[in-house]
């Protein structure tokens, strides 16, 4: 199983799983530490699942996390919710006639992201390193970066082919062509913001400059909690941090 949503949903998740198999969940993989991907960990561990994640997921879940931009503190998770197997680069599972390759991408959505590739099924789960059809949430407070986010998508593109089914952390199943368009969009916006920074523009000026994302704002990429304005600010801060 990959990711487990918020804790209150566990009974419904287990009921849904029972419609396809009576077997217990053996392994649970967390694609990153955020609560909408790890909130059910404690419940799943009690159900017998072994939780696997990148080492930074365990580190971040072990202590309280403060999000400066949202002014919100997430308390440390109970011991029972922490991943018990961690990896630094990658790990593979071999069962059900399937080789499942789990690999870390550096400083992307967070600093603990993992993608999961089902090699035989040719299905790639990208966690939150891909928000299909919408601007990405890049958590700079958790070690994410715009540069790493783009690099992560490029790494995924090296692995997949035209037939690969891509499962994003949120929204609809996608494919290679759509992912290529998505990374092109991010690179265009990045180039726009870099040009502004090089011209000496301030964070406020970049954040307020709607022309930098207009092309994609008009395609409704910003019609959710990551608006064009939020994305411009994220790019500015991330690029300044990386200087």
């Amino acid at each position: 199983m990959i990711d487990d949503q918020f804790a209150p949903l566990t009974p419904k998740i287990l009921a849904a799983i029972k419609t396809v198999t009576e077997k217990p969940i053996k392994f649970l993989i967390n694609t990153h530490w955020h609560g909408d991907h790890t909130g059910g960990n404690e419940n799943m561990q009690k159900e017998g699942a072994v939780i696997v994640a990148h080492e930074n997921v365990r580190k971040r879940m072990s202590v309280a996390q403060f999000n400066k931009e949202r002014n919100r503190t997430t308390p440390a998770s109970p011991k029972e919710a922490l991943p018990v197997i961690t990896f630094s680069k990658d790990v593979s599972f071999h069962f059900n006639d399937e080789d499942i390759f789990i690999f870390h991408v550096h400083e992307a959505h967070t600093d603990g992201d993992a993608m999961v590739y089902f090699t035989k099924s040719n299905v790639l789960h990208m966690g939150d390193t891909y928000f299909q059809g919408k601007y990405p949430y890049i958590d700079l407070n958790s070690g994410g970066s715009t540069q790493g986010y783009i690099a992560a998508i490029k790494k995924a593109l090296l692995l997949i082919n035209d037939d690969t089914k891509i499962i994003p952390g949120h929204r609809n199943v996608s494919d290679k062509a759509a992912l290529e368009t998505y990374v092109k969009m991010l690179e265009e916006i990045e180039a726009n913001v870099i040009a502004e920074i090089n011209a000496g523009k301030s964070e406020k000026e970049v954040t307020e400059n709607t022309s930098l994302t207009k092309k994609y704002d008009d395609l409704n990429f910003g019609d959710w909690f990551i608006s064009g304005k939020v994305l411009r600010k994220t790019f500015y801060r991330s690029l300044q941090k990386g200087k």
Binding site: Q5, L9, K12, I17, E98, H170, N172
Partner: peptide, 25 residues
């Protein structure tokens, strides 16, 4: 069967007493 779980719509929304969640496979 390998089960793969992802969730749409709910992210970052959280829960309240006004919301009912159904899960489809």
């Amino acid at each position: 069967i390998t089960l793969l779980i992802i969730f749409l719509l709910l992210s970052f929304v959280g829960f309240s007493q006004q919301k009912e969640v159904t899960i489809k496979v």
